[in-house]
Simulated assay, not measured.
Amino acid sequence: MKKTTLLLFLLSFSLWAVPAWAQKEASIWYFGGGAGVSFANPQEPQALKDSKMFSEEGSAVLSDAQGNLLFYTNGMQIWNRDRQLMANGSELKGHESSTQSSLILPKPGSSHLYYLFTTDFQGQSHGLQYHLIDLSKNNGLGEVTSKNNLIFAPVTEKLTAVRHQNGRDFWVITHRWNSSTFYAYLISPQGITFKPVESTIGAMHTGDNGGTIGYMKASAAGNKLAVASWAPLNKIEVFDFDNATGQVSNLVDLGKFDEAYGLEFSQDGSKLYGGKNGLNGGEARIFQFDLRAGSTDAIIHSGKQIGKSTSRKIGALQLAPDGRIYVARNASNWLGVIRNPNALGMDSDYKDAGLSLGTQKSEFGLPNFPGFYFQNIPAPTGFVVQQQQK
């Protein structure tokens, strides 16, 4: 009887656990000047050369739960799994020179409908738009069945998503331009709730249109939100996020970072990484903050440089299925890699020439993936993760 009970327990555990470990929606990356990476084998990421896309900054890619490509976009065009333009997939009102030009989410409750959200560049009039993609069309190659639907303008180039506490819905989060207000839009089986949850907190995003530039990222658990702002704001901020209500709270201003652009959380949520370039570039540096250091002052003072790049400018930082964080080096055939991002300080192990892209080049962006795709990935293998101080 005990053996039977144990067997049933193990079987039920495996049935529960497998879907979490089998999530491979972020297995394929396309970005930059025709560049790509496959994480089909997370221990040996491979450069891809079959992309048809150019994007100076933002892009988004989605694969299915088994890691098979579904489609990808720069916010202006969409390419299907055959790497051809999707039906009705051109003349979208995003912009490939927007930091987070695009974001893909499945429509809750549907197996074949997907939302694509796009942002215009530098706070221009196209703002935040949504487009609906039906992958049941054209023998699975898909079709854009509704496009260029304005949600709100003007917004900054910041765009991310968090899974709702209920495990089904999503929050799509952006920041209003000429404002200090975050907008969080609920996405449910009923569609998009067009009245956002508003949170007025943090820096005023205003002035020169360059202030629209820079990433917004959510932690894998969805409880933290971070914002990097390019000149003239030149700063990095981190907040708490309530994935039940959509509210942003508890600002920690991490200080001045000239031409701040990319940032990312470690998979365990304990560290935040941010990049800066220096005024007019030439000082590409990566910093780490220990979010478990204690008080607000302790978090601020935990900041330390953990890497620098030979590239004049660096862009996006993006967590990957192998547990590492990849760094876009502008106009380079290489990505930088933070090889052990859960670890403290220099043990995080930044390598500037971390992953070769072959003959293809990175620009400023990497694919814009919601953090929740990485919530259940293991820590990088081959490295000892430093234990957190209690």
Score class of each variant (00 low, 15 high):
residue 239 F to S: 02
residue 241 F to C: 00
residue 184 A to D: 07
residue 245 T to Q: 13
residue 268 D to T: 03
residue 230 W to I: 06
residue 157 E to W: 00
residue 185 Y to M: 02
residue 193 T to W: 10
residue 245 T to Y: 11
residue 170 F to Y: 15
residue 203 A to M: 07
residue 205 H to A: 10
residue 219 S to T: 04
residue 158 K to L: 02
residue 197 V to P: 06
residue 271 K to F: 01
residue 266 S to P: 05
residue 188 S to F: 08
residue 155 V to L: 02
residue 264 E to A: 15
residue 244 A to W: 10
residue 194 F to A: 15
residue 249 S to T: 15
residue 187 I to T: 03
residue 185 Y to A: 11
residue 229 S to Q: 11
residue 166 N to R: 02
residue 264 E to M: 09
residue 220 A to T: 12
residue 211 G to R: 07
residue 214 G to L: 12
residue 215 Y to G: 09
residue 198 E to F: 11
residue 174 T to D: 07
residue 250 N to E: 04
residue 253 D to N: 14
residue 258 D to T: 09
residue 232 P to I: 10
residue 146 S to M: 15
residue 170 F to M: 06
residue 237 E to W: 14
residue 237 E to R: 13
residue 264 E to I: 04
residue 255 G to R: 08
residue 175 H to I: 11
residue 202 G to W: 02
residue 223 N to C: 01
residue 211 G to M: 07
residue 217 K to N: 13
residue 256 K to D: 11
residue 227 V to W: 13
residue 263 L to R: 03
residue 217 K to C: 07
residue 252 V to W: 03
residue 150 L to F: 05
residue 234 N to V: 06
residue 162 V to R: 02
residue 192 I to H: 14
residue 238 V to D: 04
residue 153 A to S: 12
residue 225 L to V: 05
residue 240 D to L: 12
residue 166 N to H: 11
residue 202 G to S: 02
residue 168 R to Y: 08
residue 155 V to M: 00
residue 156 T to P: 07
residue 167 G to F: 03
residue 228 A to Y: 00
residue 158 K to R: 13
residue 146 S to P: 09
residue 244 A to L: 15
residue 174 T to V: 09
residue 266 S to L: 02
residue 194 F to R: 15
residue 197 V to N: 12
residue 194 F to C: 14
residue 178 N to C: 04
residue 164 H to K: 14
residue 201 I to W: 12
residue 248 V to I: 14
residue 265 F to S: 12
residue 221 A to R: 05
residue 211 G to C: 08
residue 152 F to V: 14
residue 238 V to L: 05
residue 198 E to L: 15
residue 237 E to G: 07
residue 155 V to F: 02
residue 149 N to Y: 06
residue 184 A to R: 09
residue 267 Q to F: 03
residue 254 L to C: 06
residue 208 D to E: 07
residue 169 D to S: 05
residue 263 L to N: 03
residue 187 I to A: 04
residue 268 D to Y: 03
residue 224 K to T: 03
residue 155 V to N: 00
residue 239 F to A: 14
residue 227 V to M: 14
residue 249 S to N: 15
residue 228 A to S: 09
residue 262 G to F: 00
residue 232 P to Q: 08
residue 202 G to C: 05
residue 192 I to R: 10
residue 226 A to M: 03
residue 186 L to G: 08
residue 252 V to C: 01
residue 156 T to S: 14
residue 198 E to M: 15
residue 151 I to E: 04
residue 210 G to Y: 09
residue 267 Q to L: 04
residue 167 G to S: 01
residue 237 E to K: 13
residue 269 G to D: 01
residue 186 L to S: 13
residue 154 P to L: 03
residue 150 L to T: 00
residue 252 V to F: 04
residue 250 N to R: 13
residue 173 I to N: 01
residue 146 S to Y: 12
residue 160 T to W: 08
residue 180 S to V: 05
residue 191 G to D: 04
